[in-house]
Simulated scan of single mutants.
Amino acid sequence: MQKQANPELEAWILDQVRAGHSPEAVVAPMLDQGWQEQAAIDAVETVVRRHLEEHARGSGVPVPVPVPAPVAWNGPSVLNAGDREVQVLAHLVHPQVVVFGGLLSHEECDGLVELSRGRLARSSTVNLNTGADEVHAARTSQGVFLRRGENALVARIEARIAALLEWPVENGEAMQVLRYGVGAEYQPHHDYFDPDRPGVGRILARGGQRVASVVMYLNTPTRGGATTFPDVRFEAAAVKGNAVFFSYDRPHPMTATLHAGAPVLEGEKWVATKWLRERAHA
């Protein structure tokens, strides 16, 4: 007969999680008590998620949702992304930020730049009051959206990201390629959509909330251009072929995912950004 979590076990699981023990360390004693491994994993996830949901409702903040989680604590330093191995260069737990080395080859970076160079326009942001795209003073780059699967190069990179993050290709928005010249930047902002703004309803109807971002560096600026996280004083350097991934399990500043594209001080910066949604994005 499959074991079930009782109140005493649930309290013990929460105590272990609060103490900072890894999921593996919480599951191991349950296996010693005769639990099947998958049942133990499911029980721990259920207890923790129910606790988080109850805490969120009691605190008046959004309930967390599942997000991509490609890296475990003290996990492998090289991950299989389907057609390519990708290095884990840095991993921040809260917020969940991962710096990937070699997500793209140099040839793929150059290909995305050439595909986009003649199609650039002043970058826009979504006006959350109207749901429309508008030019904003906080974002001084030039960019273009590449349709999902637009060509073999784009499709290959999208499939690689999906394999690396274990998140469906169809949940991704169109890839955006951006160019930042000297002095260009993207001031601190969140990538999720504020659900309290009047124009957000029609945005969320097309796949739900954004839950993660992947920023891929298509060249190495001479100086400047890092992706910064001011709340946690962390930055990822812009290095050709590398990428920074971060997720946010609810549309709230408590995710600590405030981030910025720091000004380019010398040279130029090219990036490709992929935003991921809860569900299939149309």
Rank of each mutant, 00 (worst) to 15 (best):
E114I: 08
E114W: 07
L115E: 08
R117N: 02
G118V: 01
R119S: 03
R119G: 01
L120E: 00
R122A: 13
S123C: 08
T125Q: 12
V126I: 15
L128H: 11
T130A: 14
G131S: 09
G131A: 11
G131Y: 05
G131M: 06
A132R: 13
E134C: 04
V135P: 00
H136F: 15
A138M: 10
A138F: 14
R139C: 06
S141R: 02
Q142N: 13
Q142A: 12
V144F: 09
F145C: 03
F145M: 05
R147A: 15
R147W: 11
R148E: 07
G149W: 11
G149C: 10
N151D: 14
V154R: 07
A155D: 14
A155T: 07
R156F: 10
I157G: 02
E166R: 13
V169Q: 05
E170K: 07
G172W: 05
G172P: 00
A174K: 07
M175K: 02
V177D: 00
V177K: 00
L178D: 02
L178I: 04
R179D: 00
Y180W: 02
Y180P: 00
Y180C: 01
V182S: 03
G183Y: 11
A184N: 12
E185M: 13
Y186P: 00
H189M: 06
Y192I: 01
F193R: 00
D194M: 10
P195C: 09
D196I: 09
R197T: 05
R197V: 05
P198C: 09
G199A: 09
G201P: 00
G201E: 14
G201C: 08
I203C: 04
R206V: 11
R206G: 06
G207E: 04
Q209G: 10
Q209H: 14
R210Y: 09
A212W: 03
L218T: 04
L218G: 04
L218M: 04
N219R: 02
N219S: 05
T220L: 05
T220A: 09
T222N: 06
R223E: 14
R223N: 07
R223C: 10
G225E: 04
A226C: 07
T227P: 00
T228G: 12
F229S: 01
P230A: 14
D231I: 13
V232D: 03
F234K: 01
A237W: 09
A237F: 10
A238N: 02
A238L: 07
